[in-house]
């Protein structure tokens, strides 16, 4: 009986989560130029169209550049914040953790408006730089969390052992703390990258015509003309995310493994 409940729950939940995706994906291979079922025939023409059209390719490259920039910046901010927070007294830790996590608690629309306003006042304007900055702020809490978790998991005696052997604080950080927390940094980086790569709300507020990212191009295409090429882009985006999920999983396995 319990197995029946278990499997029906699993099936229902999986269907609920995955069915929309599963329904959309086949349309990318449909010969018809309308997004309708039943499929008329199978083709890779739409993929060819997307991969040769400069709008899509440029948007993809732009997204990649923004995501990489945001990832680097988020890694620096979140990583430093986490390594610092671990060293301060307990009460201050709670307060600082709250502060560093606030960007993911505030609704993205609010963040978008706030950035648009702030950058406007500061005279930075839209474009690549402001996108990277905003996405870094969104990604930093994720880096912060995953680094903090991996730092908390370290045996505090390892650092003391290093000290007893004469190693200075910075030497200990480089040779003990950092290598052991590396999986946390890597996982944080992946999170930050994905967050930026498919972020659309803040990007809508900040992007200028010269910095159209892939999600924005997708969004615009959706309003313009419903075509299978949009679905193709969606499939490609999902593939990238899936790739990173697999990467993340492998990283987590590596974190879990060396516990003795």
């Amino acid at each position: 009986m319990s197995r029946v409940i278990f499997w029906s729950t699993v099936t229902f939940c999986t269907a609920f989560l995955a069915l929309p995706l599963l329904l959309v994906w086949p349309l990318a291979f449909n010969t018809s130029s309308f997004l309708t079922y039943p499929l008329e025939g199978l083709t890779l023409d739409w993929f060819h169209q997307v991969l040769t059209q400069p709008t899509w390719v440029n948007a993809f490259l732009k997204s990649l550049k923004v995501a990489l920039g945001a990832m680097m910046l988020a890694l620096a901010i979140g990583g430093l914040a986490a390594t610092g927070v671990i060293l301060v007294p307990r009460v201050l830790q709670v307060v600082l953790t709250g502060l560093f996590l606030s960007p993911i608690v505030v609704p993205t629309v609010v963040v978008g408006v706030a950035f648009a306003y702030a950058f406007g006042r500061a005279g930075i304007g839209g474009g690549y730089f402001s996108l990277v900055l905003a996405h870094a702020v969104l990604g930093a809490p994720l880096v912060f969390l995953s680094v903090l978790t991996s730092l908390r998991g370290l045996d505090p005696n390892l650092d003391l052992a290093g000290a007893s052997m004469g190693a200075s604080r910075s030497y200990r950080f480089r040779t003990i703390t950092l290598p052991l927390a590396l999986p946390g940094f890597a996982a944080g980086a992946v999170f930050a990258f994905i967050t930026s790569f498919d972020e659309v709300v803040v990007a809508l507020f900040l992007a200028d015509p010269g910095s159209t990212t892939l999600p924005i191009a997708l969004f615009a295409g959706l309003r313009d003309r419903l075509q299978p090429s949009i679905v193709v882009v969606a499939v490609l985006l999902s593939a990238v995310s899936l790739l990173f999920l697999v990467l993340l999983r492998r990283l987590q396995m590596r974190v879990a493994a060396p516990k003795s």
């Binding site: 045996d155 390892l158 003391l160 052992a161 000290a163 007893s164 190693a167 290598p179 060396p258 003795s260």
Partner: peptide
């Protein structure tokens, strides 16, 4: 004097070997 300047060897209860 801070621990790193004392030149004392220490064997910890859980050994605290560097796992990596």
């Amino acid at each position: 004097v801070p621990p790193e300047k004392r030149n004392f060897g220490l064997v910890f209860q859980g050994y605290a070997l560097f796992p990596h």
